[in-house]
Simulated assay, not measured.
Amino acid sequence: MSLAFWTVEEGAIVPEHSHMNEQIMQVLEGRFEFTLNGDTKVYEVNDIVIIPPHSPHSGKALTPCKLMDAFSPAREEYK
């Protein structure tokens, strides 16, 4: 497993992508619009999103945000 912490500026966009890792995203601060498999929702502080492997997802920071991602298995590029 690997953890990643992100500070995201308001208006920043995460382009649609997918990966082989299961991912759990938690919003630590702010409001983050997140699209998973074509379904868009707005997530706020302490909200969690579970992203299955190979699922297309993207996002946009509606405010300045702090996010935490947990990946399993570990993301090799984050080592």
Rank of each mutant, 00 (worst) to 15 (best):
M1E: 09
S2K: 13
S2Q: 05
L3P: 00
L3A: 06
A4I: 12
F5Y: 14
W6Y: 13
V8H: 07
E9I: 04
E9G: 07
G11M: 04
G11Q: 04
G11N: 03
I13S: 04
I13L: 03
E16I: 10
E16S: 12
H17D: 09
H17W: 06
H19T: 10
H19K: 06
N21Y: 01
N21C: 02
N21G: 05
I24G: 00
I24A: 06
M25E: 11
M25W: 01
V27C: 01
L28Y: 02
E29A: 10
E29F: 04
G30W: 14
F32N: 01
F32H: 03
F32G: 01
E33H: 04
F34P: 10
T35E: 15
T35A: 11
N37A: 10
G38C: 06
D39T: 15
D39G: 01
K41C: 03
K41A: 07
K41Q: 13
V42Y: 14
V42A: 04
Y43L: 13
V45M: 12
N46D: 14
D47S: 10
D47H: 11
D47K: 08
I48P: 04
V49Q: 03
V49F: 05
I50W: 10
I50R: 14
I50L: 11
I51N: 04
P52F: 03
P52C: 08
P52G: 09
P53T: 14
H54I: 12
S55L: 12
S55A: 15
G59A: 09
K60M: 15
K60Y: 03
K60S: 08
A61I: 03
L62A: 00
T63S: 11
T63I: 13
T63K: 01
P64S: 10
P64E: 05
C65F: 12
C65L: 09
C65D: 05
L67R: 09
M68R: 10
A70I: 15
F71H: 07
F71M: 03
S72P: 02
S72D: 09
P73L: 03
P73N: 01
A74Y: 02
R75I: 10
R75G: 05
R75V: 09
R75H: 09
R75S: 01
Y78N: 12
K79A: 13
